[in-house]
């Protein structure tokens, strides 16, 4: 009942999970315990996914079977479970030190996207907020969002489409929350705490008082969020 490479498990062996989920910069690695029965692996995965569904969604996972070999039908079952229940992308299965099964092309890291319906509906009217968004106010729209007033620091405006602020944008604006990189943020003045378009985040440069009344648009150019000023 001991591991071959002498790795010690934290805590009591009886309490150790049948499957360890390790996180690294590329995504997650699933490491089944060497002696865990297959049913325990499946049960544990199902429990984890039902508890924290959103956390693993669209994550890229690697299955490390170097310590615990599995049969091909078992691998296929796990693959289906990961993809269907967890909406995870199983990228690679490590079978040995030099042997790995590549299941899917790993893409650039996709950071977590907030819970908004990902289907942009351009035929639906924008959500219009008729007053200033004060600190602590959170607005979510599944189309465009227009704020007739300021967005104060501490407020959040999240839209699947564009965000348009007829005032000072000083809080957080997230356009293209469903992943649409062509979405834009418009404001009479952009002095935000944070700008987000699709999966990119930008923080304003420190210091410096912003110029008076101007008209600014934030959009993605060359994989970065750029702010363009148009004098009114």
């Amino acid at each position: 009942m001991d591991s071959h490479d002498g790795k010690t498990e934290a805590g009591n062996l009886g309490d150790a999970p049948p499957l360890q989920i390790k996180a690294n910069r590329q995504g997650f690695t699933l490491v089944p315990a060497p002696t865990a029965p297959f049913e325990a692996l499946v049960g544990y995965l199902e429990k984890r996914f039902s508890e924290s569904r959103d956390f693993f969604r669209r994550a890229e996972m690697t299955l490390d079977l170097r310590e615990r070999p599995l049969r091909t039908d078992e691998i296929a079952l796990l693959h289906r479970l990961l993809v269907d229940r967890g909406q995870v992308r199983l990228v690679e299965v490590k079978l040995g030190e030099d042997l790995a099964l590549v299941m899917d092309r790993p893409s650039e890291r996709q950071p977590f996207v907030p819970r908004v319906s990902p289907r942009p509906r351009p035929d639906h009217a924008a959500l219009v907020i008729h007053n200033t968004c004060r600190s602590g106010m959170r607005v979510v729209s599944d189309t465009d969002c227009v704020v007739l007033g300021d967005v104060n620091p501490g407020a959040e405006v999240i839209a699947v489409g564009n965000v348009i602020v007829f005032g000072n944008l000083r809080g957080v604006a997230h356009a293209g929350a469903g992943g649409d990189r062509s979405a834009r943020i418009w404001a009479l003045s952009i002095e935000p705490s944070q700008l987000r378009i699709a999966d990119l985040v930008a923080v304003p440069p420190r210091g410096g008082k912003p110029a008076a009344k101007r008209y600014e648009i934030a959009e993605i150019q060359d994989n970065l969020i750029e702010v363009i000023t148009l004098k009114g």
């Binding site: 004060r134 600190s135 602590g136 106010m137 104060n152 620091p153 501490g154």
Partner: peptide
Amino acid sequence: RDADRVIG
């Protein structure tokens, strides 16, 4: 910031 929240 807190005053803004309270006013809201």
